[in-house]
Write a protein that binds this DNA or RNA. Structure first.
Lengths: 148, 148
DNA sequence: TGAAACTATATTGTCCCTGTAGAGTAAGTA
DNA sequence: TACTTACTCTACAGGGACAATATAGTTTCA
């Protein structure tokens, strides 16, 4: 299960992607249309800003906007920022590898071998799907094929 | 990330699958060889017993053993027992469907559409891989192909 | 009869998730 | 310049899940 926070982050990014670029959108507007607690959303967007996904302008005509084109922001990138590692086991994470305390030998670990397949399959979808993809009613062919 | 408990459960089942069938294995023996806290393992095995995966015999010559052949116990089944739903979103779970509170219309939810692909990919691996598969050094062809 | 092992429930401490609070800062507007 | 609006940032609190431990009891076999 992904966290509520990650879901909010993705929904906010999708909402921003729908706006005309260049014109900032109020936090309050996103919060209302997406049913996200406003103060919580502030934290989330601030976090995304620190990671260079969105930009903000203060003041009366302020708000948030995408900093990069929607087709360069993958679901995987967002999830890693908000929820941390995607891998199902710490010893399979690329961004935060950690050895399993209670595992004698990684190479011969049966559990690890199976979950490595899961991790590949998951990353195959998340790292190749962008916010722009999500907006399209039909999924791009490269993703439909990968899953079928 | 799967829970520590799920990892223990899978490792215990793999260990049991390695033993000659019919002869029970001590909890203490599994706990020691797998570096699992013994009392915690007791809870886990008890849980698996309630779900019909393993059987136990009490007394001095007691212990645990697989109740079903190892090639009929899938990783997915074990994870659902121990960790609950596998789906990344509650609205995508087959065993515990729950509507997302903050989602206007499920059919048009962009997030849901993407994570449905993730769920399919994940289940593709977990529901088709069994404890018996995990014991084999090379993964069965049907799984290798699915991921490549 | 006693040891070894399983059964079951209760409890504990820690950590994270979710959300709230409030003071502060910046930018446009009259 | 004063005012309003909105973003920035830090702190924190309640609840629940996770991981493990504690304790008491039961069964079986030697």
């Amino acid at each position: 299960m992904i966290s509520q926070k990650a879901k909010y982050a993705l929904r906010a990014l999708v909402a921003l992607a729908k706006q005309p670029p260049g014109k900032p959108t109020f936090i309050g507007e996103i919060a209302e249309t997406q049913s996200i607690p406003k103060k919580f959303l502030e934290q989330i967007l601030l976090d995304l800003k620190h990671h260079g996904l969105v930009a903000s302008r203060r003041g009366k005509a302020g708000g948030y906007g995408l900093l990069r084109p929607a087709d360069t922001i993958s679901f995987g990138e967002v999830l890693r920022i908000v929820d941390g590692p995607i891998a199902p086991l710490p010893c399979l994470s690329k961004i935060a590898y950690r050895r399993c305390e209670d595992c004698k030998e990684e190479a011969s670990c049966e559990i690890r071998r199976v979950f490595a397949q899961v991790a590949d399959a998951t990353r195959g979808v998340l790292d190749r799907t962008t916010i722009a993809d999500a907006l399209e009613a039909r999924l791009p062919a490269r993703l439909r094929d990968a899953v079928a």
